Simulated assay, not measured.
Amino acid sequence: MNFNDLKIFTSIFETQSLNKSAKSLGYAQSNITERLKIIESTFNSSFFVRSYNGVKPTPQGKEMYKFAIDTLNRLEKLQKDFRQEKNNILTSELLLNYAMNQENMLNIETDKIVIKKTGDISSEALKHNYKIIYSFKELNSSQGYKKEIRNLKSYYLCSEDLPVTKGLPLIVNSDLECPFRKESLKNYKIAHDKKYLEINSFANILDILQKGIGYSLLPDYLIDLKKLRKFSSEPVNIVFYVYKKKIY
């Protein structure tokens, strides 16, 4: 007996006719009769009383109907859940923006996205089963994942409406492990007396730049996307990693 047999059984129960059931399911009546015999043999029970004008369910048939309906409903729900299974994705805030705008790989309506600071991604990756992980740092353990090494071409950017002047403050992410912060501060402390501004999120940095308050090292795809301009002409390549779960 299989799931299709349960569908045949429920059809017979609801139509109370082998002939009507055969027509609705697209089978020959002899096939329906044979499958019903197999179902009854499997449970060693008689589920219907045959008569000249159709079939009537026995008490055992009524119990079997409840079981069949419950099983088929569970099967349908399981199939629906599998079709709508969400991708678990781990990423930093900036790389989430990159993946959504440059790769079109993420769907915020269906994917389960976990955002962590760069320094917390390796430890978080060990706690749950993620299908894709975007990280600026290599994972401490990447077993079961295929690793891709990529580069983000970046520039120091500012508002497109802002003239380039020497008095603008540098804006960096407050996450100490952020590679854009590290690259920005390599020579800044030596060459400048003014204090840089630390901002706690990528979104807030963009907001400040668009208001013309400072400049910051960011990926070049944001130039057109966020109406920014290059504050300096020297590109900086920032390495990041994409880990994709292996399918065996």
Rank of each mutant, 00 (worst) to 15 (best):
K77C: 05
S24R: 08
A68E: 05
S232Q: 09
G119N: 00
L106N: 12
M1I: 12
K7I: 04
E198L: 07
Q84A: 14
S141I: 10
Q84C: 13
E148D: 13
I208V: 15
K116V: 00
L72F: 05
E63C: 03
Q102L: 09
I208R: 14
Y65E: 09
S17M: 03
Y156M: 04
G214F: 01
N200Y: 01
D5A: 09
S232K: 09
K56P: 06
D120W: 04
N107L: 07
N129I: 13
L162G: 01
E138R: 02
L168Y: 00
E138F: 07
I190T: 15
L168W: 05
N187L: 15
E183T: 02
D120Y: 04
A22M: 01
G119P: 00
K244Y: 10
Q84W: 04
F202D: 03
L218C: 08
I39H: 02
K137A: 11
N44F: 01
A28S: 13
Q84M: 14
K146S: 12
L218Q: 01
I190G: 14
I121C: 04
K166E: 14
D81I: 01
L96M: 13
F43D: 11
I38Y: 13
A191F: 14
L185H: 05
L218V: 11
L25S: 04
K245V: 11
K117L: 15
G54F: 07
E183L: 00
K182A: 11
L222W: 07
M1H: 11
I132C: 05
Y65S: 11
A22E: 09
R150L: 12
Y243D: 06
D111E: 03
Y221H: 03
K56E: 12
N200L: 01
H128Y: 13
N200Q: 03
M100S: 15
Y188D: 05
E63L: 09
L168G: 03
R83W: 06
C158H: 00
L176F: 15
K131M: 12
N88S: 11
N129C: 14
E34H: 14
E148C: 11
E40D: 01
S92N: 10
E93M: 10
N31H: 15
A68Y: 01
F43Y: 13
N97Q: 02
S159A: 00
V239H: 06
I213E: 14
S154F: 06
K116N: 00
E103Y: 02
E109P: 08
T165W: 11
L139D: 00
L72I: 00
P235N: 00
G119W: 01
L185T: 02
N104D: 09
G214D: 07
I133P: 06
K211H: 09
Y188S: 03
S41R: 10
K23F: 08
L25N: 09
S17N: 02
K77M: 07
V55E: 03
E124Y: 07
I115K: 03
F231S: 00
E85I: 01
C158F: 05
I199R: 05
D70E: 15
Y215R: 10
E148T: 12
I171P: 11
V239E: 02
E198A: 11
I32L: 06
K244P: 08
L18S: 00
N2P: 09
E85N: 05
L162Y: 07
